[in-house]
Write a protein that binds this DNA or RNA. Sequence first.
DNA 1: GCGACAG
DNA 2: ATCTTGTCGC
Length: 261
Amino acid sequence: MHEGGKKIKINGDSVDDAQREEWMHQQLTLKSRLIETDDISFSTDNDFSGLRYIGGVDLSFVKDNNNDAIASLVVLAYPALEVSLDHPYIAGFLAFREVAPLLSLITSLQSKQPSIFPQFIIVDGNGTLHPRQFGLACHLGVLANVPTIGVGKNFLQIDDGVELSMSHVKKVTRDVLKKGGDVYYLKGQSGTVYGAAVRSLDTTTNPIFVSVGHRISLDTAIRLVLRCCKYRIPEPTRQADICSREFIRTQGDLEKGQSSS
DNA sequence: GCGACAG
DNA sequence: ATCTTGTCGC
């Protein structure tokens, strides 16, 4: 269930003996904590009852560069070996479709790789830019108790005055966001600020829609997102998208059309 | 019937 | 989100 992966590779890299000793020491120290028997949250019977999700991790390296890589974590449902969604996509209720598999990714990473657990997560979907000010980014942040930021690629209209109508936002956004970093706060007639339309770069016209997810203020969220933009879409989201697409492309889709019905 | 519609 | 090739532009 994984791609890429040939790691051990002869190259000119080396470390001094002191580093080597230190690393060996760490290996032996950590080995004292090693458990080599089943200590898992599911049964070891024939069908592994209780097993729901399986995670896989990997690094992909940039060509001609041994030091820059992208880390990715994949979670697949068992036994299907693909993530299946239990609910349809309904605008305003995206979280009920996507939060479960995303949450399992987060908890998986927390237990398996706590040393690189992210200090905040950019979510592909809105946070408080939502009819009830509780979109996917908020939902995931609260359930995982992790700081999150919502970033949408498209505007979700909110019923709080013409200021937040699709047409108005498109127009104002086109006029006001003149250069990278420009921000237009999305404020309704009620006075509520749901989020902001942000122009990522000088070279891109369409804004992204940033909103509070959990434990991060809107202004901090905007500053953080802008620092993440090499292209219109913040790099964490963009890489996650690229990885999942590549996975589907190489590992191939499974057919649809399960029996029943 | 018409409008709106994150992913 | 996805169906889909080339193409215009920096």
